[in-house]
């Protein structure tokens, strides 16, 4: 039996609007062990909101409700804002979609990584420097000394994303939430970044939540997949069996992809069934 790092039960994210309360995430339950869990869905399906809600990053007027979000037996919902800060970064960290918007443009990369490290540990500056260099090397960045002195605009997208990963992994968290970490990158660079994440997750025995809209990528990279639609989980399946998925929504998404090996005159367009959004959420708990 796999031990659960994270246990989320009945998670709701709500935003009050002039037209009434909008439910972005509606009653989602899942567990995460030491595995790579993929969350896929279209934009607006609530996948990013799920990731943010786990870290309690949703600010008022947004509302997060859950029966529990348990991190190794401790309920995160009960924690004070101050205690949450000790969780964020140190125990659960998050890699955001676009490195351009997540790095501080007026600080050198070295300063930013060292700051992230020193916030969470009592290391001296020289220790932090050495550790940062080591992390940059771990994410296959050539010439890390130069990169430490550089500013974010001097980096390409792929390098920026690797730097983000280095920064997130430096406090050695138990769980990494990666929100579309590769969708801003090229296919060739995408592979490299994924390989790096994969290696680090395996070596350190971390749990990874991988949020993406790319079904093929998730099928390739993850162990287990949650498919979200309109704020609910419509299907849970093993990643290697994703291509045999049953739910019409998953099938529709898979069929709408053009494929090199199976040319077609027209692509299938997803026919949405209003029933999908009203059907109760499937539990992703083990």
């Amino acid at each position: 039996m796999m031990t659960n790092l994270l246990d989320v039960e009945n998670l709701w994210v709500k935003f009050p609007t002039r037209q009434g309360v909008f439910d972005a995430v509606r009653g989602v339950s899942f567990t995460l062990g030491r595995e790579r869990l993929g969350i896929v869905g279209e934009s607006g399906s609530g996948k990013s909101m799920t990731g943010r809600a786990i870290l309690r990053l949703i600010r008022p007027p947004g509302i997060v409700e859950a029966d529990q979000i348990e991190l190794e037996g401790v309920d995160l919902m009960q924690k004070s804002e101050k205690d949450m800060r000790a969780v964020r970064g140190q125990r659960i960290s998050m890699v955001m979609q676009d490195p351009k918007f997540s790095l501080n443009p007026v600080m050198t990369i070295g300063d930013q990584i060292m700051e992230a490290y020193r916030l969470h540990s009592k290391a001296s500056k020289s220790e932090a420097y050495a550790k940062s260099l080591e992390m940059l090397e771990a994410v296959s960045i050539r010439n890390p000394e130069r990169v430490m002195r550089a500013y974010p605009h001097e980096m390409s997208g792929g390098m920026g994303q690797r730097i983000m990963i280095a920064m997130m992994l430096i406090p050695n968290p138990e769980i990494l939430i990666a929100d579309e970490p590769t969708s801003a990158l090229d296919v060739s660079v995408q592979r490299q970044v994924l390989d790096i994440m994969d290696r680090l997750v395996k070596e350190r025995g971390m749990g990874l939540i991988f949020i993406s809209h790319d079904l093929n990528l998730v099928a390739d990279f993850c162990d287990r997949v949650l498919i979200m639609y309109a704020g609910r989980i419509v299907e849970v399946c093993d990643a290697d069996k994703l291509h045999e998925a049953q739910h019409p929504y998953t099938r529709g998404l898979l069929n709408s992809l053009p494929r090199l090996d199976a040319p077609r005159k027209r692509l299938e367009v997803l026919q949405r069934d209003p029933q999908w959004s009203t059907a109760p959420s499937v539990s992703g708990r083990i």
Partner: peptide, 8 residues
């Protein structure tokens, strides 16, 4: 765009 919208 999303894959479903991409198809359209």
């Amino acid at each position: 765009l999303d894959v479903s919208v991409q198809a359209e």
